[in-house]
Structure formats: structure tokens, C-alpha cells
Amino acid sequence: ELITAAYELGVAHPPGYPLFTLLARLAIGIFPFGSVAYRVNLLCGLLGAAAASLLFYTVFRLSGSYAGGILAAGVFAFSRLTWHWSTAAEVFSLNNLFVGLLMALTVHFEEATTMKERSKISQVGAFCCGMSLCNQHTIVLYVSCIVLWVLFRLFREQELSPGRLVKLGACFLAGFLPYLYLPASSCLNQARWTWGDQRSFQGFMTHLLREEYGTFNLAKSETGSNMTEMLLFQVAHMKTQLSLPVQVLAIVACLSAMMRDKMEKPALVWLFTGMLCSYSCFFAWRANLDITKPLFMGVVERFWMQSNAVVAVLAGLGLAAVLSETGNGCVLPCLEWLSAVALVTSQIYSNYR
């Protein structure tokens, strides 16, 4: 469906995914080889690789550890779920890219030392936050946490003026410009296959808010697993996808953040942890599908990649934190690299043997 929408410049299923559609259409025109489907799949693979690279960047900038960055990027990229949805024409690899990008920009903002730097990064970040919502709406929980944190930081630095708020709001709204594609496509009416009619404001909002599916649900008129069951399934699923040691290292990162002398910029660890918890709880509350059924489990598990990306980053930070106390000289780098390579190799072996 997404390939057809991109090829014919039609509208995909709600909420329309205009950014992915336009990027896929660009890939179809630019890549000089392979079928149309192959080109879109290749685009998704490149987006997935970029997402993993941004996880590496985030961990490295926070901890200075190359090994921690490799661990975060490796365990996430080579998890069965991430690999599968990064080699198929779907919107999840682009969402993973935005998750990594927003975390990387957050680190960059935290490192800024002047008002001019913070102003520039916050405006770029606001634009990226808006654009991320042109793809998968579940990222709104991460966007909300980051926006509140940035506004608080600007307020604390006495840099949050009405003019600054207007600029940030304008940048955020500018990120939504790809949604103009939906009414444009409907008005041109050239696609043989398209979803809905967005020529009217009501039709546009119906599609944007996913009213056919249920705005805050995965499906309409479905009764699924309860919140507790969903969260327990997610934790067990995360263990399968990322491994128990990675989960433990993520917890170590949180514990290290409690001791400010053990980790640089502990506030970001708590921000990422808050993003993870708020998203996981909200999604478990609203994902109204019975995950004891394999079909529905396959639908739900795709949205857990957004949580896995944050856990992978926390694990990379945890590795850097725990080994910073265990050695010096050449011992520390060797232990870091040995641990990172062992965990990533184990990930590859477990999922692709």
C-alpha cells in the first residue's frame, strides 16, 4: 500500500504518512536500479542505518565512549524487530530515525554554552519535532517530554521570552508542512488508488486524527489486553529483542544518574527514562488489541521499537558508567570493547543463526 501510494502520489492509510510518501517517491526517482518496491525497501534500510548511527552519536556525546555507542547502535540495529522493519516498505524505520534524531538534538542542546547556540538548536529541534509527527503519531509522547524539558531549560536560563515562544511555535508548525500533500493529492486526483478524500477540512481532519481506526486506539471497537499485561509482555519482549544484560545496563545507567559524580549530564538520563516510561505506559493503556493472539501481537510489537531505542541508549550509557569504575590505563578500553562486541555478537547470533 505505501509503495503504491508513493509511486502514484496517492494518500496512504490514516494518518496519511505524507513525509514517508514523499521520501519514498523521491527514492523511486533517484535510485537508478531495482524495482519500485526494491527502491522503497532500500530507502527504509538506509533510514534504519541512519537511526542506529544517531543512537551511537547520542551515547558517544553523552559518555565519550565509542564502545557504549557501538553497543547501543548494534543491539538496536541487529534486533530481529528492527532489522525486519528496516528492510520492508514501512514507516517504522523513519520513526526510529526521528527518535534517534530528537535524542541527539537534545544532547546537542544540553551541550550548548551560549544563548545563540541554544536558540538555534531549539528552533531546529522544534522543526524536527513537528516533522516527526508527519510520520508516526506515537512519537508525540517523546516530543512532549523533550519540549517541556527544553522550555524549562530556557526558562531557567532566563531566555524564554514571548518572542522566543513565537519563533519556536512557528518552527514547530513549519514541520507540519508535508501534511499539505494530503489535500494536494486529493485535489489532483491522479492516483488510481488512494485513501479517503482530504479536499475538505473535515475530510482532512478525519484522516489526520485516524478517526476510522480510533484516534487514541490502535483499532476501533476492539477490546484488548489490560495495561499491566501489556507492560509485562513488553518487558519480556524487550528481553528477547535486546537481551537481559542490555536491560540490566539500562538500569545501571539510571542508578549511576542518581550519583551525579558517576555520570555526566544525569538530567538527560532522567529525561530519556521519563520518555520511555511515559510512552510505554500510555501505549499499554491505549493499545486495545489482544496480544495473546499472534496476529495482534505482530501489530503491537512494532510500536515497541520506539521504547527499545531508548533502552539501547541507556544501556550504552550504563556500560560506560559501570566500566569507568573498574579499571584504568588500557584496561578500561579493553573491557568496554570486549563487553560491547560480546553483546552485539550475541545479538547477531541469537537472531540470525
Rank of each mutant, 00 (worst) to 15 (best):
residue 3 I to P: 01
residue 7 Y to L: 05
residue 10 G to T: 15
residue 12 A to K: 02
residue 18 P to W: 10
residue 23 L to D: 06
residue 26 L to E: 01
residue 28 I to W: 06
residue 30 I to G: 03
residue 31 F to A: 06
residue 34 G to S: 05
residue 36 V to S: 01
residue 36 V to N: 03
residue 39 R to V: 06
residue 41 N to Y: 00
residue 44 C to H: 12
residue 48 G to K: 03
residue 49 A to F: 02
residue 55 L to M: 12
residue 56 F to K: 08
residue 60 F to Q: 05
residue 62 L to D: 09
residue 62 L to R: 11
residue 64 G to Y: 05
residue 70 I to V: 13
residue 71 L to E: 00
residue 72 A to N: 08
residue 76 F to I: 02
residue 77 A to K: 08
residue 80 R to V: 02
residue 81 L to H: 03
residue 82 T to C: 04
residue 83 W to N: 04
residue 86 S to I: 10
residue 92 F to C: 01
residue 94 L to I: 08
residue 95 N to K: 07
residue 96 N to A: 15
residue 96 N to F: 10
residue 97 L to M: 15
residue 97 L to Y: 15
residue 97 L to F: 15
residue 104 A to K: 00
residue 107 V to P: 02
residue 107 V to S: 05
residue 110 E to H: 08
residue 113 T to A: 01
residue 116 K to M: 13
residue 116 K to Y: 06
residue 117 E to V: 02
residue 117 E to Y: 11
residue 119 S to F: 13
residue 120 K to Y: 11
residue 120 K to W: 14
residue 120 K to C: 08
residue 121 I to N: 06
residue 121 I to D: 07
residue 122 S to K: 02
residue 125 G to R: 10
residue 133 L to P: 01
residue 134 C to P: 11
residue 134 C to Q: 00
residue 134 C to N: 04
residue 138 T to G: 10
residue 139 I to P: 01
residue 141 L to S: 06
residue 146 I to K: 04
residue 146 I to W: 14
residue 148 L to M: 15
residue 155 F to K: 14
residue 156 R to D: 14
residue 157 E to W: 12
residue 160 L to A: 01
residue 160 L to C: 01
residue 175 G to H: 05
residue 175 G to I: 01
residue 177 L to A: 12
residue 179 Y to D: 01
residue 181 Y to M: 07
residue 182 L to R: 00
residue 183 P to N: 10
residue 186 S to F: 03
residue 189 N to V: 13
residue 190 Q to M: 14
residue 194 T to K: 13
residue 194 T to S: 13
residue 195 W to Y: 15
residue 198 Q to I: 05
residue 199 R to N: 08
residue 200 S to T: 15
residue 204 F to S: 02
residue 205 M to D: 07
residue 206 T to N: 15
residue 206 T to M: 13
residue 207 H to F: 01
residue 207 H to G: 06
residue 215 T to E: 02
residue 219 A to Y: 04
residue 226 N to V: 03
residue 234 Q to C: 14
residue 237 H to S: 11
residue 239 K to H: 08
residue 242 L to Q: 12
residue 248 V to R: 06
residue 249 L to M: 10
residue 250 A to W: 03
residue 251 I to M: 15
residue 252 V to C: 10
residue 255 L to Y: 08
residue 259 M to R: 09
residue 262 K to C: 13
residue 265 K to P: 00
residue 265 K to F: 13
residue 266 P to W: 13
residue 267 A to C: 13
residue 268 L to Y: 05
residue 272 F to Q: 12
residue 272 F to R: 02
residue 273 T to A: 13
residue 273 T to M: 07
residue 275 M to E: 13
residue 280 S to G: 04
residue 281 C to Y: 05
residue 285 W to F: 14
residue 286 R to M: 15
residue 286 R to N: 14
residue 291 I to M: 05
residue 291 I to S: 09
residue 298 G to C: 11
residue 299 V to C: 00
residue 300 V to H: 02
residue 301 E to M: 11
residue 301 E to S: 04
residue 302 R to I: 11
residue 302 R to M: 10
residue 304 W to E: 09
residue 305 M to P: 00
residue 307 S to Y: 04
residue 309 A to S: 06
residue 311 V to W: 00
residue 317 L to C: 14
residue 319 L to P: 00
residue 322 V to P: 04
residue 328 N to I: 07
residue 335 L to N: 03
residue 337 W to Y: 03
residue 338 L to R: 10
residue 341 V to I: 14
residue 342 A to T: 12
residue 343 L to I: 04
residue 343 L to P: 00
residue 344 V to W: 02
residue 345 T to K: 13
residue 345 T to M: 15
residue 348 I to K: 06
